[in-house]
């Protein structure tokens, strides 16, 4: 995952190393939260007549998780191609986030 986002490749100073690890975990946590929200919306019966996951819901969640990761890779590759344009749109400057 470190590599998926390519952040923090050159990690010199002490504070920077810590910040890099912290940042990666933050990225992961955010991705996890987003996946939870989206896959719950896609897969769960919202009437809550049951307190457990039905078989179909469980399978749906597993597939949704796999597809969500795949979508990240796909979108990230597409952005890499459209590269510079995307970075300008995101506020310009700097280079090479590894997307």
């Amino acid at each position: 995952m470190s590599s998926l986002f390519g952040l923090g490749r050159p990690q010199p100073s002490s504070a920077e190393k810590i910040a890099a690890v912290e940042n990666e975990l933050k990225v992961m946590a955010l991705m996890h939260t987003r996946m939870l929200k989206i896959c719950s919306a896609k897969c769960l019966d919202k009437t809550y007549r049951e307190g457990e996951l039905a078989k179909g819901e469980s399978v749906c969640l597993d597939r949704c998780a796999a597809k969500f990761f795949e979508a990240h890779t796909t979108v990230s590759e597409q952005l890499q191609k459209q590269g510079e344009a995307a970075q300008r749109a995101a506020g310009g400057g700097g280079g090479g986030f590894g997307f």
Partner: peptide, 25 residues
């Protein structure tokens, strides 16, 4: 029931997340 189911959802997705993440890495 909603809390139970949501926790179950979260646990399940956490497992998948860790698995997929490990294999991607």
């Amino acid at each position: 029931r909603c809390v139970s189911k949501s926790m179950a959802t979260q646990n399940r997705l956490s497992e998948r997340f860790a698995e997929i993440n490990a294999s991607v890495t």
